[in-house]
Simulated scan of single mutants.
Amino acid sequence: MRNKPVIGFIGLGLMGHGMAKNILEGGYELWVRGRSNRAPIEHLVSMGAKEAINPKQLAEVCDIIHICLSNAPQIEVIMRSQYGILAGAKPGLIVVDTSTSDPDMTKRLAAQLRAKGGHFVDAPMAGTPAKAEAGQLSTMLGCDRDVLPHIRPVIACWAETITRIGETGEGHKMKLLMNFINLSYADLFSEATSLGAKVGIAPEKLREAISSSHIGQQVL
Rank of each mutant, 00 (worst) to 15 (best):
I53G: 08
G48F: 07
S46G: 12
L58F: 04
E25V: 11
G26N: 10
H43D: 14
N22V: 11
E42L: 13
N37L: 09
R35L: 13
H43Y: 14
S46W: 08
S36A: 06
R38Y: 02
A39I: 15
M47H: 13
Q57D: 09
E29P: 03
V32K: 03
E51G: 06
L30D: 00
R38P: 03
A49K: 05
Q57V: 07
E29A: 12
I41C: 08
R38D: 00
A39Q: 15
N37M: 08
G26I: 01
W31Q: 02
K21N: 13
N54G: 12
E29W: 06
R38K: 15
R33D: 02
R38T: 10
M19N: 01
Q57A: 11
N37P: 00
I23W: 07
Y28K: 08
G48W: 05
P40I: 00
Y28L: 10
A39C: 03
Y28P: 08
P55I: 03
P40S: 05
M19F: 01
K50M: 13
G27R: 08
L44W: 01
G26V: 04
P55R: 08
V32T: 02
A49T: 03
R35C: 06
R38M: 12
L58Q: 04
A49L: 08
M19Q: 14
Y28V: 13
W31G: 01
A49M: 06
A20R: 06
P55Y: 12
S36E: 08
I23Y: 02
I41F: 00
N54A: 08
G34H: 07
A52S: 07
L30Q: 03
K56G: 04
E42R: 12
N22W: 11
E25I: 11
L58N: 06
K21S: 13
A39V: 09
N54W: 13
L58D: 04
K56D: 00
